[in-house]
Amino acid sequence: MRFLLLLLAVALAAPPAGAQPTGTQPAGQPTAAPPAPAAASARLKDLVVLEGAAPVQLVGYGLIVGLDRTGDRARGRSSAPYTVQSIANMLRRFGTTVDPLRLGARNAAAVMVTATLDPFSGPGGRLDVTVSAIGDATSLSGGTLIQTPLLDPLTNLPRVVAQGAVSTGTLLASAAGSSARTGPTNTGRVPGGGLVVEAVSPTLDGTTAGLILRTPDFTNAARVAEAVNARFPAAAEAVHAGLVRVAVPEGGVVALMASLESLQIAVDVPARVVVNERTGTIVAGGDVRISEAMITYGSLVISTQVDPVVSQPGPFSDGQTVAAAVGGVAIDEAQARSVLLPPNADVGELAAALDALGMTARDVIAVFQALSRAGALQGELVIL
C-alpha cells in the first residue's frame, strides 16, 4: 500500500503534458548543458613510480630483551626452545658459554623484524622497522631489540642492521588474575632503528624511462602520456594500463622526473564500493550509480524465555517437591518500510534513502550485496 502511495505521489508531482517546466528555456532555444562535475586531480609523482626503482622488502630474525617477565615462557625443551638457544648463541659471541637448559626467557622474546628499504636510500640512512613476536610472549612493551641484520630475500645479503627501543603504543594492565589491554602488545616498531649499510642500485640507465601507475587504469595512463607530451612533445607513449614509456632527454632521468613530478593529472576514479564486514566500514566512490530499484527493510525478533516452576506436594502427603520449567516464545515483526530509488541514483541518494529507513552499518552492507546480486549496482563491490 505504501509503495502504491509513493508511486501516486510521484505521478501527482509530475507536470502535465505540454506544460512548460519552471525555469527552463522557451521552445526552440538551445538549453545549456549542466556543468560536469570537476574531476579530481593529483600530481604525477603521487600516481606513478619509476620502473627499476621499486622498494625492497627486508626481513630478519632477532631478540628483544629487557621485558618485564612478559617474554617467551620457554625453558629448556619447552614450547619455544629457539628463544633460549638464541640467547645462548648471543652470549657465546661475547665469550660466555652457558648451558641452554639452565637459561630462562621470561625477559626476552624471539621476533621477526621487517622493514621496507627505499631504493634511493644510501649507506647511513635511517628507517623504521617492525618487530613481531613469534613465540608465546604476552607483551613487547619496554623491550630493546638487539642488533639484527635484515636480509634482501633476492640476494640474501644484509642491507640494514636494526637496533633500538621498541614502541608498541599500547597499554597492558593486570591484577588478581584479570588483565586488560588496548591494542596488540606483541607487535611494535623501532622508530629510526634501521641503519642502511648497503644501498640498492636502481637501474635508471637507458634512452627511455618507464612510469608505472600505482593503480593501473587505461584512462589515467592515456592522461599521463598526454600531460608528458604537453611538456616534452612526442616523448611519451602509453604502453598499457599500467605503464607509460617516456624518452629520456639530454639531462637524464633526474632532470626528466624533476620536470614531470609536479604535473597535475585529472584522475579517473573507478566506480567501486569497498566494504569491511569486520568493522562495518563502507567506502563508496562518487561515480557509483544505482539503477532503478526498490528496497524494503523490516525486522523480525524472536525471543525465547524459560521460567522455572516448583511443584509442591500437598500437606501430610508422600509426594516430593519437583522443579520444572515452562518455556515461552514471542515473535515481534516490525512493519516493513520501503523506498524507491530513481534511475541512475548516486551514492548520496542511496545514503539518504537508507538513513530514512534507520538501517545500521551491517544492514547497509547487506543492501549493497543484494544490489550487486540484483545487477542494480553499477560498479565493483569489494568485500574485505
Rank of each mutant, 00 (worst) to 15 (best):
V56T: 14
L117A: 14
L47M: 14
P81L: 05
T96I: 12
L145T: 06
S141L: 07
T144E: 08
L127A: 05
P35T: 09
A39D: 05
T138K: 00
G122M: 08
D99P: 10
I134F: 00
G142F: 00
P26V: 09
A32I: 14
Q147W: 02
A80G: 06
L117D: 13
L103R: 09
A88V: 11
L50E: 05
I64Q: 02
D128N: 07
D152F: 08
D128H: 03
S167T: 05
R43V: 04
L44Y: 08
V56S: 09
R69S: 15
L67Q: 00
L50S: 04
D46F: 11
D136S: 12
L63R: 14
G95M: 08
S121A: 15
N107V: 00
P55I: 05
V59W: 04
L91E: 05
M112C: 02
D128T: 07
T155F: 07
A53T: 04
V131E: 01
R73Q: 15
S121H: 12
T138H: 01
L117Y: 13
S167N: 12
Q57Y: 10
V84L: 07
L67V: 06
R77A: 15
F120V: 00
P153C: 07
P123D: 09
R93S: 14
N89E: 10
T116Q: 13
A88H: 11
T148Y: 13
G125D: 15
S41Q: 14
G143H: 03
L58A: 10
Q57C: 05
L151R: 05
P34K: 12
P158V: 11
Q25S: 14
R126W: 09
A80F: 10
A80T: 13
T97G: 09
T138R: 01
A40M: 11
G124A: 10
T83E: 01
P119H: 05
R126N: 11
S41I: 08
L157V: 15
T97I: 11
V65F: 03
V49P: 00
Y82D: 15
N156G: 05
N89F: 02
R77S: 15
R75F: 11
S79A: 15
V111R: 00
A80V: 13
P149V: 10
L145N: 03
G125A: 15
L140F: 05
